[in-house]
Design a protein around this nucleic acid. Structure first.
Length: 340
DNA sequence: AATGCCGGGGA
DNA sequence: TCCCCGGCATT
């Protein structure tokens, strides 16, 4: 992800950076995408794919707010609104985290509902063969700047434009969740891992987005919030849908189109692989959770099984005859009696 | 507004 | 496991 920094910020030390980030967390300019936070297991990371935020010359992915330009001194931090710094458990001697970078970020942002696990927000370097995890955005930026961009000491020349490839990850401190939290669709274009800048290939003035897209507006070069960690649950891939709801649609005049495909690995919760068949017993236990990085799912997140048009118990029997409903309907689950 | 149902929680 | 429900998407 590319992180545009203004020149004065290049001189910031970590404390200043943390302060700026803190102030930004309450700024309206911070764009927290309406995506549920994804949790990840420690170690479940792979060299995820990565796409620059700007993918279409039509400007279809217009997530980046135009107001960015009017505020060059406020780069968006890789912090979503629900970011918060969870406490560190004392029984956590060393998990590979740079201790020097901890506890700079304290946000009192509202926590998403029903998320009561205490989590640590970490920032993982996405450079190839790195995977360094730090606990602050400033720290990871410094890491990238010094290690990957070769800017030792931060004092040398800077063109005011640096690219920071890192992503925010959340670590459950109670380590109960298996990371298969709410899923977001993955662009099919991410099937093949996108090219990543290598250490030798990078030049200080090289911008990932510049090299990848011709449409390089200042907007699309925005903050690390463009990256999202997405887990795909391959348990559902065993039954690839014949009919993918949505898909690309073109307007009659062909002037525009919209893509609303549903990603097969992700969201076919309605047609799960039945554990009683299609799957050898015992072999299906490991549903490979595979991690992919994607640009924000602007198009079709929150995918659900399209609601069937058939009448369901509620409609048929009515609320007054609720006892006649099937149990699923009574429990507000998918109707079992009138299956579509 | 009504409906369908996912995700989560309590017992 | 059963049961319920908040909340969201869809109709």
């Amino acid at each position: 992800m590319c992180f545009r920094k203004s020149s004065e910020e290049l001189d910031m030390d970590k404390v200043t950076a943390a302060m700026v980030l803190t102030s930004l967390s309450t700024s309206p300019l911070v764009r927290s995408p309406p995506v549920r936070p994804n949790e990840s297991l420690n170690g479940s990371w792979k060299e995820g794919g990565f796409v620059p935020s700007s993918t279409s010359s039509s400007g279809y992915w217009s997530w980046n707010a135009p107001s960015d330009q009017s505020n060059p001194s406020t780069p968006s931090p890789p912090l979503s609104a629900d970011s918060f710094k969870a406490f560190r458990t004392p029984s956590q001697p060393d998990d590979g985290i740079d201790e020097a970078e901890t506890s700079n970020l304290l946000f009192d942002e509202p926590i998403p509902r029903k998320r009561k696990n205490s989590m640590k927000v970490m920032f993982k370097c996405l450079w190839k063969n790195c995977g360094k995890v730090l606990s602050t955005a400033a720290g990871i930026q410094k890491h990238i700047r010094t290690i990957h961009l070769g800017r030792v000491g931060e004092s040398d020349y800077s063109d005011g434009e640096e690219d920071f490839y890192y992503t925010e990850i959340r670590l459950n401190t109670d380590s109960v969740a298996d990371g298969l939290s709410s899923l977001s669709p993955v662009s099919p274009s991410l099937a093949s891992p996108p090219s990543f800048p290598t250490q030798d290939a990078i030049r200080p003035e090289t911008s990932c987005a510049k090299t990848e897209t011709k449409l390089m507006t200042p907007l699309s070069r925005s903050a690390p919030t463009n990256l999202y960690l997405v887990h795909t649950d391959h348990a559902y891939q065993a039954t690839p849908p014949v009919n993918i709801p949505g898909s690309a649609k073109f307007t009659p005049n062909g002037s525009s189109f919209s893509i609303s495909w549903q990603s097969p690995p992700v969201t076919f919760t309605g047609i799960p692989v039945s554990p009683t068949h299609n799957r050898p017993a015992g072999s299906g236990e490991q549903k490979q959770s595979h991690t992919v990085l994607s640009s924000p799912p602007r198009v079709a997140f929150g995918l659900r099984k399209p609601r069937g048009e058939g009448k369901k118990c509620r409609k048929v029997y009515g609320m007054e005859n609720r006892d006649m409903w099937c149990t699923a309907c009574r429990w507000k689950k998918a109707c079992q009696r009138f299956i579509d």
